[in-house]
């Protein structure tokens, strides 16, 4: 197996909760609490979960937009967890981010040319035929008209703005792109255009993606492997086929069965797992297995002992005391996939 491009080990981010005049710390929001995974070169890893599960925080920790409180982020063999801003800056060329909201992630006072050209300026990169030519090439690559170089973001539609955001991340030919909900703010027909664009760019430019999203069907479409998060922890990590066809964690099962299926004939025959209640607050997460308050399989051990993330089938990790589709029952072809 090749060396992973990105390796995250026991990553933690506890936001302090303070109180009173002296800002004494009275608790912590454990937004990300011991997350470990690898992203291999050329693959797409999907990170899914409901709101508040820490998926966005994980993405921001990896790019060091916020400082982790524990754990390690290793990118191409460099431990970047506590690297100084000066040292990390050259590495940022190789690691870029696509944001969710194309309306707030582009400066309204800058032209498209300035926005997409900014990475060249910041990194001090000189291109053969000048920055303008380079920017226009990238605009053409993401399906925008290169002549729109001098226009402002408000002159574009939502889908086009997201393309501008993608053009900006591609400017310096990064190796890893972290896309945080890249399509959730877009209309259905535009979503599909952007998803296809991301796939085409991956093939053309040999990119590696970490896609953070809540939409399970979009994640299945673009990911090679998928990690499911719940309250700051990864509960299941597997390749696409393993996760969607024989999910082991009850939470993954519940998530998958909750997705509405666009088939009016099928709705009668489907049995849906109804989860009770909402996701608990990460300020005071349930002890041991964090899912036990909503889990229909929970027993005494789930309330006292935290299940470790174990590899139960090749390439299929799950953190549960009572996993479903356990390897003995799993189909052999699933087990053979790594």
């Amino acid at each position: 197996m090749t060396e992973p491009l990105l390796s995250v080990q026991g990553l933690e981010k506890h936001f302090p909760v303070t109180k009173g005049l002296l800002q004494r710390q009275v608790g912590a929001v454990k937004a990300v609490d011991g997350v470990s995974f690898d992203v291999r070169k050329g693959e797409t890893l999907g990170l899914v979960g409901e709101s508040g599960c820490g998926k966005t925080t994980t993405g921001r920790l990896i790019t060091r937009l916020i400082e982790p409180t524990g754990g390690k982020v290793i990118f191409e063999g460099h431990d970047i967890t506590h690297m100084s801003q000066g040292k990390i800056r050259p590495l940022r060329r190789d690691m870029q981010m696509i944001f969710q909201d194309p309306y707030s992630s582009l400066n309204p006072r800058h032209t498209v040319g300035a926005i997409v050209g900014a990475p060249f300026k910041i990194q001090g990169v000189h291109t053969e035929q000048g920055v303008k030519k380079a920017v226009q090439d990238i605009l053409a690559l993401v399906g925008l008209n290169p002549e729109h170089y001098n226009r402002y973001p408000h002159e574009f539609s939502g889908g086009q703005r997201q393309r501008i955001g993608i053009a900006r991340t591609l400017a310096l030919k990064p190796k890893l792109i972290i896309a945080d909900e890249p399509v959730s703010a877009l209309d259905v027909s535009i979503q599909a255009q952007v998803v296809n664009l991301l796939e085409d760019l991956q093939n053309e430019l040999d990119l590696t993606y970490l896609v953070i999203a809540h939409d399970l069907s979009v994640v299945r479409h673009i990911s090679d492997r998928v990690a499911v998060m719940y309250l700051g922890k990864i509960v299941e990590l597997a390749d696409r086929k393993g996760l969607y066809e024989s999910p082991m964690h009850p939470y993954t099962n519940a998530l998958l069965s909750a997705v509405p299926i666009p088939d009016p004939k099928g709705k009668a025959g489907r049995e849906r797992i109804r989860l009770q209640g909402d996701v608990p607050s990460p300020l005071n997460p349930p002890p041991a297995c964090r899912f036990h308050t909503r889990c229909w399989k929970a027993q005494e051990i789930c309330k006292t002992e935290e299940p470790p993330l174990l590899q139960l089938a090749p390439g299929h990790q799950v953190a549960c005391h009572f996993p479903e589709n356990a390897p003995a029952l799993a189909e052999p072809e699933v087990a053979a996939q790594t």
């Binding site: 539609s157 255009q193 296809n196 796939e199 479409h221 666009p262």
Partner: peptide, 24 residues
Amino acid sequence: GLLGSMPRLDREPTERLLPIKGSP
């Protein structure tokens, strides 16, 4: 176009989505 734009969990994954060109 709407049906083609939407990835579906109840079917085998397709290689590519079939979006509508342009925008509303």
